[in-house]
Design a protein around this nucleic acid. Structure first.
Lengths: 331, 331
DNA sequence: ACTTCAAGAAGAAACGTTTCTTCATGACAG
DNA sequence: CTGTCATGAAGAAACGTTTCTTCTTGAAGT
């Protein structure tokens, strides 16, 4: 394999017997050149396999069309993101960027790793920021335009796109839980905005005379932790359980079954976040339906607006529909 | 918001009353400077929020640590990649890159779109290249190091990583199909290397006296097309069907059921590519198990080796295990 | 007191583009 | 014959780094 150095604009200029200016103009269609020159230069550039260096271009201009998607990796348990949620966001966002001539870089949701990278980003989408997320500070420090999917409740001036979980959850409860019921909210893991929202939706239902609400923190997704929390809730008289997300809901369903409680006969079960798995199994679980794909597209579009310098980019709530299943049928 | 231009190395030099050389040296730890100067410069750089421009850096050196993952988007039907396969490859490859200080850019498997992008890539992983894939030519033309997951059978000099589908499929057949059986291979869509391999695995089984093999091309994944092809195969006397992949296998199972044929009683059913869904339902489908995660990690590691300039990077086959389920139990 | 040397720091080239400015030429009008 | 203009093309600056080279200074060795 010939290890020759890449042909640069200088090489083309020399080969064509013209100046670099002429080459640049000929290839970009600018300047005033007769067609003859233009074609000659193009032919030679072509023949030499000349490709302008994106880096050199970027040095002069503003950026090279890169946007980041900052998201915790998908997979197993723990704080990892659910695979289909992850895939929906990543595919839809990157497609949206692509059709605008930008390319998406996958970034870790981790400042330590981010610091090892040195990438010229035009902007970044941060997915599910935590409260006072250091990742947001990281990008702010570097003056990189940032938009979040899900909100960092502690930052008021930031721009986000989010499911309207509060309203969605309230509608879900109203549709399936009879007034006066004792409802237990089960949460787990770090605080994300949708959890806060789900709670405030449930609170507003309770405050408006829907019923009473108690909140329980699960130590983890392992069966024993979930069982402990469920027992606690049931012992306090709860006859309806609302979980933070799909995975927790599935565990709760199993735990209730193991305890011999009928769903929905003894306890009605709801999830604040829908997922395909909730529709499977003998007792499907009712849930509010998030729209990762739609959020990703909206986020990408807005971020591109910001990059183009539009001044009036605003945050947006996306309305949620509800999926009614066996675990909590319509009243 | 203050719209000041980014602080550059010149700004720091001016503020510190030293030359740019000194700033560069102080921050990078090179050159010979007394600690006093070093610290002073660092303090000022810090205070000014100075971040060296990755682009400028890249201009001088070789690259900015970007690698591409070129893969057809995941989702619905058509030529799109299966979601879990897609996610496994993208997460594992990008994680591997990340831990080496590189970041992954998601690229479309589409020359038209690639041409609109101008990104300085150190290398790229092309997932499931088609035969004589123009995408490979695209990267070759641009002198970008390229490694494929799955092979382009027409390019012999390229470097790849792949499941050993031929051996896996042959083992699968040997374990579940009795000698002398008429086996029908059903394929669909564009030719990818794993299909060629699956066929050659089946061929070698047939050639060594295992049984007879016929190959059928399905016009599409829609029920009517699948039904047509299955009818054809069964009419020719096939009592075992091997499908190209999981989705086709699922359709075939439904079609057989609709035709009133018992699986595995009347017809044994196999898939050349396993997926989670094959384990679900009353009649799980036996299959050879690909390892997208492992392939992605191997591919990333090898590509990084190539980028580092290692001369002896070789292609690798990854052995496949088989999943035995109800549709074709062990003999 | 004169050379030699090392430390500290600055200068300047190079990386590959784009773009603003300038220059030369010839045509045309006065 | 001279001044104006348009055309075609080259020159050079700028983008922000890194790194190789050079320069200055003071200290040490003879």
């Amino acid at each position: 394999m010939l290890k020759m150095r890449k042909t640069t604009i200088k090489g083309v200029a020399a080969a064509a017997g013209v100046s670099v200016t002429t080459v640049s103009d000929a290839l970009s269609g600018k300047g005033r050149l007769p067609d003859a020159t233009r074609e000659k230069v193009q032919a030679i550039a072509n023949q030499l396999g000349y490709r302008p260096s994106a880096i050199a271009r970027g040095l002069r201009g503003s950026g090279i069309g890169l946007v980041g998607i900052c998201i915790a990796p998908a997979g197993g348990g723990g704080v990892l993101t659910d695979v289909s949620y992850w895939a929906a966001i990543v595919t839809h966002a990157s497609q949206a960027f692509l059709s605008d001539g930008h390319a998406a870089v996958l970034l870790p949701h981790d400042v330590g790793l981010l610091e090892t990278l040195h990438i010229p980003l035009d902007g970044v989408i941060v997915v599910d920021p935590l409260e006072r997320d250091p990742v947001l500070t990281f990008f702010e420090d570097r003056n990189i335009r940032c938009l979040t999917i899900g909100r960092d409740v502690s930052k008021t001036e930031s721009i986000w796109v989010d499911d309207d979980t509060a309203t969605g959850v309230r509608r879900l409860i109203e549709a399936t839980i009879s007034p006066g019921t004792k409802l237990a909210f089960l949460r787990v893991g770090p605080i994300k905005s949708y959890v806060t929202d789900a709670i405030s939706g449930a609170r507003s239902w309770a405050a408006d005379g829907g019923g009473t609400l108690s909140i329980h923190q699960c130590a983890g997704l392992e069966s024993e932790h979930v069982a402990h929390t469920v027992r606690e809730a049931v012992h306090e008289g709860a006859t309806a359980i609302l979980t933070q997300n799909d995975r927790l809901a599935l565990r709760v369903r199993d735990v209730l079954q193991a305890m011999g409680r009928d769903v929905p006969g003894d306890v009605r079960l709801l999830s604040a976040a829908d997922a395909m798995e909730l529709g499977q199994g003998p007792v499907g679980i009712s849930a509010a339906r998030p729209h990762p794909a739609r959020l990703a597209e909206m986020a990408a579009a807005k971020l591109l607006d910001m990059i183009r310098g539009q001044p009036d980019v605003a945050s947006t709530m996306s309305p949620m529909e509800v999926s009614i299943r066996e675990s909590a049928p319509l009243l």
